[in-house]
Design a protein around this nucleic acid. Structure first.
Lengths: 250, 250
DNA sequence: AGAACCATTCGACGGAGCCGAACGTTTACT
DNA sequence: AGTAAACGTTCGGCTCCGTCGAATGGTTCT
């Protein structure tokens, strides 16, 4: 973790990030936005094209489906993903809401799979989308099953960023909640990440009790009252258990 | 398209490719497989980790979900993908078979979306998977709607690789078929890519008659006789038309 | 036809990447 | 437990390769 790095690699991926962000770009446009010399950007783009990760069409550069491919292969190797198989779909049908599978990666909470039920609200949720661990039900479910010092490290590095007025920003409050989550077996989040949304999430553990991910159901506060909340909590816990069993027999 | 390149970029992506291929890897393992000095690979991996595209856990390096994210964003911007919306699902339900959306990229035919019907055979098909254009129904549907000299260029660069005994390897035969495909509005492939599989595919064109992609249904030869073939051909053509209309109104 | 803009090529300079070797650390075997 | 082998990581000096200004060629305006 020393400062050792490689300028070219860093720059190449800054260009990729820029392309991913804005969909496509021309040489000079990118050069300006990234504050690099035009000829340099041109060189990088040529190099990227020759790798197959970037394509040109009429001087418009864009990322290729190679990213999809690499991403999908990687996802396929995530054992949780295999184990969760049709569970997500079942939950989506049963609850009608927005269902996701998330894992931890680089101190963040990442969506791995999305399944929208018939009544699902349109969230900005797609595979690969990231969010802070502390500011959402699945993230908290994951933190609850990590060693305390690991949690503290994450807080140190990432802080407890406020996403809405409900977001937990006090470490003590967070640790209290994590304890409760361990006791009751699932996590709740009431507008802590997105105002007006309630999320319920259960952790998926493997046989060594290591945390592998979390299953999450999200819906608007107006539709999810106390009773419904308990019902959904039961469903996600049941599914997490099924997944856990699948995980051990893969 | 000159030889101008960037060694660092090339090497960085060779490492990524290797990780994508084998799922994960350790420093020395990768160093040997890629025939690079250990310390060099170590440097690259550190650089890649700092970009967020690669992660380490217990000295095991692997690609991150960042690839999924970039891939999904890119796919979302593919207008065909938006336009095809629920069509794939409908076809999968109606035919029971394996349904895909494909586009051309870098002289190749790439799967963009997959929808498996209830009876679908388990093909090795995932978003991002690539195949030669000449050796499959969707590829031929796409070639049929490209300018002839563009097709010739592709043949020059890629050749007509033989994938099964049925694969078309003679340019003249190919050009004859492309003409027939234009006439009848859809393409057929009988075991040209995978022995024993029949695929039917219709091209999706935009209002400028530019080819944007192809919708494809695949199933085992045993199940798809003459009559069924016509039925499916009608379905994919109808869906391609719907998609085309959507495309113009997006 | 001229002007403005952009992509692409070229080449000389200098700093950044490179890798062998040394150092720690983990794993495997006795 | 002790030793050896294998591996990951750090270091630093040499050199090669990336860098970017300037020139070129092409395209799209007015």
């Amino acid at each position: 973790m020393t400062g050792t790095s490689n300028r070219s690699v860093e720059r190449a991926f800054r260009i990729v990030d820029e392309l991913a962000e804005n969909g496509s770009g021309r040489v000079s446009e990118l050069a300006e936005r990234l504050d690099m010399p035009v000829s340099t950007v041109h060189n990088y783009l040529q190099a990227l094209v020759s790798t197959g990760y970037v394509a040109v069409e009429d001087k418009e550069y864009s990322t290729t489906t190679r990213f999809l491919e690499v991403g999908h292969r990687q996802r396929h190797r995530l054992e949780v993903f295999k184990a969760v198989s049709d569970e997500l779909q079942d939950i989506a049908a049963e609850t009608g809401e927005h269902v996701t599978l998330l894992v931890e990666e680089n101190d963040q909470c990442v969506i791995v799979a999305v399944q929208e039920g018939p009544d699902a609200v349109n969230l900005f949720a797609y595979p690969g989308a990231r969010m802070p661990l502390h500011a959402a039900a699945p993230g908290k479910a994951i933190l609850a099953h990590m060693p305390d010092d690991r949690v503290r490290e994450i807080i140190d590095r990432q802080g407890l960023v406020e996403m809405t007025k409900q977001t937990i920003t006090d470490p003590d409050v967070l640790f209290d909640q994590l304890e409760r989550i361990r006791e009751q077996g699932y996590a709740v989040d009431e507008g802590e990440r997105i105002a007006g949304m309630v999320c319920l999430s259960a952790p998926v553990l493997d046989k060594g009790d290591r945390i592998r991910g979390a299953i999450c159901v999200c819906g608007p506060q107006s539709r999810i009252d106390e009773a419904r909340r308990e019902e959904i909590a039961d469903i996600v816990q049941r599914s997490a258990n099924v997944t856990q069993v699948n995980l051990d027999y893969v």
